[in-house]
Structures are given as C-alpha cells and as structure tokens.
Write a protein that binds this DNA or RNA. Structure first.
Lengths: 342, 342
DNA sequence: TTGAAAGCGCTACCAA
DNA sequence: TTGGTAGCGCTTTCAA
C-alpha cells in the first residue's frame, strides 16, 4: 500500500535505479532529475522499505538492548540514553526486559539474532557464558552492561564495583562507624565486586567483618530488593554485636533496611548509618535522605551507545574493550554523623 | 554468514521450498523428511532471516512504542509490561523516548513507519493531530496511550483523568480541607481532565476554587516536575488565603510541593495536606509518605498490549476503541488528617 | 548521466 | 508429499 520506488519511477518515466540513487544522494544524477524525483517523493510521503534494503546491504540499522528490569531507574536511565544516542545516527532500538529470568533472556537474544540486529547490548541475568558463544558464532558484536561473566572476554561497560564497595565502606569508617555490616546481593559480578571492595576498605581501616555481619538478600528481583533488605537488616539488628553502619548492595535494599531500622526504634544515622548504591531519583525526598554511591548511569549509557555505534560500523573485530566507570559518593543524612567536614 | 534455507536444502538434497515448509510447520511434509530437516537446522543453529520473510508477508512482527520519558516510572512500567506481553506472541518491540519533544517524536514515528511496524503505541507530546493523519494514510494501526488529542478519534488506553481529579479532591474535602488548591500540569489532555475533575469535586462539596489557587507548573519535563512543584507551591503558600490542601498534577510535582511546604516550616498534613498522582514506587519511603492516585499503569500496559496484538492481527479496521481505566486512591500520611475511619 | 539485469533470503502459487 | 517458478522492494554492477 505505501509508495514504492517503482511507483515514482513510473510516474516520472524514469528507471527505478535512478530513483534509488536520488534517495541515497548518489552524486551522478542530473540536478533537474534530482529535483523532480525529490518533489514526487515528498508528495507521496515516500518511506523506503528498510527491510528490503537490509536484505541486500546486510545491515539492518537496528540495535538490541536487553535489561533485567526496565522499571529499575538505573536501567531505565541507560535505556533512555542509548535510545537517544543511537537515534541520532539513524538506528532504531529494540528493548526488552528479561525480568531477571535467564531463560527469557536467552529467548530474547535468539529473537534479536533472527532479526539480524547490527549490535546487541545486554545487562545479563545469565549464569553461564554459553549463550554468548552462540552470539559470537553468528558474528554479531555485543556489549555486556553492568554485569560481567567469569571466563568471558568481551566488550563491557559498567561501573567499577570494587570501587563502589571501597567508597561506601570507607565513608562509613570515616564517619566513625566501628561495626560496619554489608547486605550483599546475589552471586553476580556486581555483588561480588562490591563485597570485595567492602572487605578491602575494612582491611585498610584495620577492621574485619564481624561474624554474621555479611548477610545476603534472597533471590534478586524480589520486589526489587526492598523486602530482602528489610529481612536482612532485621537479622543484622538481632546479631550479638549490632552494627552501627550498613553498606547496602543497592538503593532498594537500603530502603528496606532503613525501614527495618526505624521499625526497631533506632535512629538513622545516630544508631545505624546507611549507605546504598544507585543514587536513585528520589533519594533526596526520603524519610531519611539516603547516602548513595552513584554508578554514573548517564556516563554508562553514553559510553555504551558510542561503543555500540562503533561496533555497528566497523565490521572489523576490534579487540574487546572494557570500560570501567569510576563511581562517586553522594552524601546525605543517612550516613552523616560528623559535622560536615569538607 | 549465517545459515540460509538454501544451505540446508543443498546439504540434504532437498528443495528450498520443502525446508521452508518444515520451518513453518506446514502439514504436508513427510515425517522422515521433517525429522532430517529439523536435525540439520539444530546443528546449524539456523535462524530465519525475518527481514526476508517480512518482504513477502507484509508483516514485520515488530511493534513500535514511543513515550515522552522512559525514566518516568509510569512509562517504564508500561514499557516493561508491553515488552513482556508482545514477546509472548513473537513480536519484538522498538522503544524510544522522545524527551517530551514533539519534533523528536515526529522523527521517531517516521522512522517506525519506514520500518513498517505492524502497530504503533504512542504516549504523545504532540499539540496537533497532523502526524497522526500521516500514520492513518500509511494504514498502520496505532494506539494513543495516556494522553488524548482533541479532534482525533482513535484507539486509546489510559486512565480516566477526570476521575483522578475527583478522587483526589473529594478525599481532601472529606479529610476536612476547606481551601483546596490545585497545581496543574501543561496543556495536555491529562492535565485538563484532572483539572476538570478537581472543579467538579469542589462543586459537589459546595466549594469553589479561591483566586490564585490554581497554579500551573511551567513546561513539563522540567526535571520531571519537582522544581515546578516547588515553585508552584511556594506561590500558593504566599497567597492571601493559604490553602490547607493541595492536589498535585503528579507525584514529582507533589514531591517538590512537599519540600516547599516543609521548607516553609509548615506541617504535612496538619497545616497542608497533599495528594499526588502516579503512585510511584517509592511513595512509601518518603519523608512524609505520599497519598497518591494510582493510574493503574499495569492494567494500562496489559490492555494496551492486548489491543496492539489484536490490531496487528486483524488487518480489518475495527472501529477505534477507547479504554478508560478507573483510577484508585492510595491514602498515606500526607493527607490523613482524620483518624482512619472505616 | 542513466538504466537493464541480477539477486539478497524467503514465501506463495501451482504443477508434478 | 515435493519442488519449480515468480516475485516481495530494494541495491549492486556494469553497460549504454
């Protein structure tokens, strides 16, 4: 039903080839002809059928993005930025939310492979690298976001998770906390990196985690961690040596933890200081404004988009590039025990 | 580089047509042949080229979604659900965030038209209906989300905004507020509907808006309204008859307004009660937990997805369907002045 | 500067 | 039950 090159060609008594060349700004077309063609295109509001073009050129001008939870502000921010950046270059973006389900994610990746996207960005919920070997076989370039996988050397853009742990924990130590606990996330690279950073920072302050002071939330994705945070904090508060500072895996977990602390009749930060990670949009407005490590989601989004565009163009296999974004701490009331030093 | 039907056909000494039929579960294929073909497909990890298929069938099995701001939890929720629902039926979803910019939105729609999506869902930032006439010309079905446009009769899924206004305002009146103000949004259908509802509810409680008690936030998208809400509320608090209740266009605006109220040394809800709209994820954790009208974004997402799938299949032009989702109020501390009745 | 011919990977149609 | 032929809308190559 929509207009085709052939229609324009017939209308103007020209060949399809000529029209096609005008469409793509090919140089060797007479000025007069070009004008006529452009005019007719406008009249018909002509849109080239990109599927047909892809079939020949092998490029689809599409990019795929798979995230575990589009509702999570961190991923929403990244998705928004990537969408904006790639659009500027004429790409369209397939986005899908895997709900933290490895099987759903695999299906989605398969779908995107069938659609021959030019490049794929994945914040993965996989435990194994098998799926990625498949992508490599199809020779479609891909980028891992946020989470890395052991044994997989590939393009990566994400925050430096060890630095996240160090930043948060050191801050608590510097605020005078003596018994710093950690509510850790599930067994993925982000949680492991932050835990490492936590241990490292404690060590450099000559502390050591007390028994029972590292607790884990259950499965991730569990109402985005609020419940897990509540339960974990409840456990911590009941432990023999009650912690006076908690570094939480992420902000939703921190919200849950703060609720548990307040419910127990304790004060934040006087009795227990709290630091989260993610710096989500509403941190300023919370009952106790939450100190949080910012993961630089905007920078991650921009870098990821830039890398994706580069990969989409250079079919040449650049060697895998890993971009670790340095995090920064945003201090708010939940961890501020000392008069604001500078 | 990836395997093609032809490759499988050659390997097995069959014709392309036979392979194609196996691929699509065509009935008239011998069991033995089918088995052989399927085996080979698995070995090669064969993925049909969907672009080629589209060219013939005219269907792309893709759907387009355009929202003003993917970071806004309301739209993120809708996007997430639509993504999940349509995937179940084998569709992939293009998502893009227009940043509340009508021009960007138009470009994006054009792009999606060129990609021949089977159906489009748009939460539009347009002021005019021109763009939609273009879509209609191309005979691609579309659904408006959240916001309607005057003079455009088309498929729509969104909350009943008048009911939103009535619900919030009546609640404030029932909580004993005597001077109820409204911070309204920009000139789009949602803001107008909520304003209408506000007026209607006041009237039915034999009240009338006091002069200066309806203020507008500036341009929408302004850091998602928090700043606008702060400024608007500051104006309201300075007015001759200070309001004792404020119905805010949405939750970000309400957050800004609450900050202004607290900054002015007033109490919520004792001095000023506040109700927002959107019921965003963190409402429970706020400094003062925010009462809010829930727009039923999950229901909207599901209904929109179902309608989109129906339109994608039935090429028959159903007559436009408008689904108004009834909102419901979630009462929290910010508006609770009376001992919880009931 | 223009256009005829070939073909991208797949499906529709009809004949064997 | 199987397969030859034609063609989707476009680009590429090469000849006029």
């Amino acid at each position: 039903m929509p207009a085709r090159l052939k229609d324009i060609a017939n209308d103007l008594g020209l060949s399809v080839v000529t029209i096609s060349k005008v469409l793509r700004n090919h140089p060797d077309i007479g000025e007069a002809t070009r004008k006529r063609v452009l005019k007719r295109m406008k009249e018909l509001d002509y849109q080239p059928n990109l599927a047909a073009r892809s079939l020949i050129t092998g490029q689809t001008w599409t990019i795929g993005l798979v995230v575990p939870d589009l509702l999570h502000p961190f991923f929403a921010q990244i998705a928004k930025l990537i969408s904006a950046e790639v659009r500027k270059k004429g790409y369209s973006l397939f986005i899908s939310s895997s709900d933290e389900d490895p099987e759903l994610e695999r299906q989605e990746i398969k779908q995107l492979l069938a659609r021959r996207v030019d490049v794929m960005l994945i914040a993965s919920a996989q435990w194994t690298i098998e799926t990625f070997r498949q992508i490599e076989q199809q020779k479609i370039p891909y980028i891992l976001l946020d989470r890395q996988l052991a044994g997989l050397e590939c393009n990566f853009v994400g925050v430096d998770d060890r630095a996240v742990g160090v930043l948060a924990t050191s801050h608590l130590a510097e605020q005078g906390c003596k018994r710093i606990a950690h509510i850790r996330g599930p067994e993925v690279s982000t949680a492991i990196g932050r835990l490492d950073g936590y241990r490292q920072a404690l060590a450099s302050h000559r502390m050591t985690p007390l028994p029972g002071h590292i607790v884990s939330i259950g499965k991730s994705g569990d109402h985005r961690g609020e419940r897990g945070g509540y339960e974990a904090a409840t456990k911590l508060l009941a432990s023999k040596k009650r912690p006076d500072g908690i570094f939480c895996f992420n902000d939703p977990v921190a919200l849950g933890a703060m609720r548990a602390i307040l419910d127990a009749g304790l004060r934040i930060p006087e009795d227990v200081a709290v630091v989260g990670c993610g710096n989500l949009s509403y941190s300023d407005f919370l009952r106790v404004p939450l100190s949080s490590v910012d993961q630089g989601s905007k920078i991650i989004g921009k870098r990821a988009a830039a890398l994706a565009l580069a990969l989409a163009h250079n079919k040449a296999p650049l060697r895998p590039k890993s971009e670790l974004i340095p995090p920064h701490l945003v201090v708010r009331a939940s961890s501020l025990r000392l008069p604001a030093a500078k």
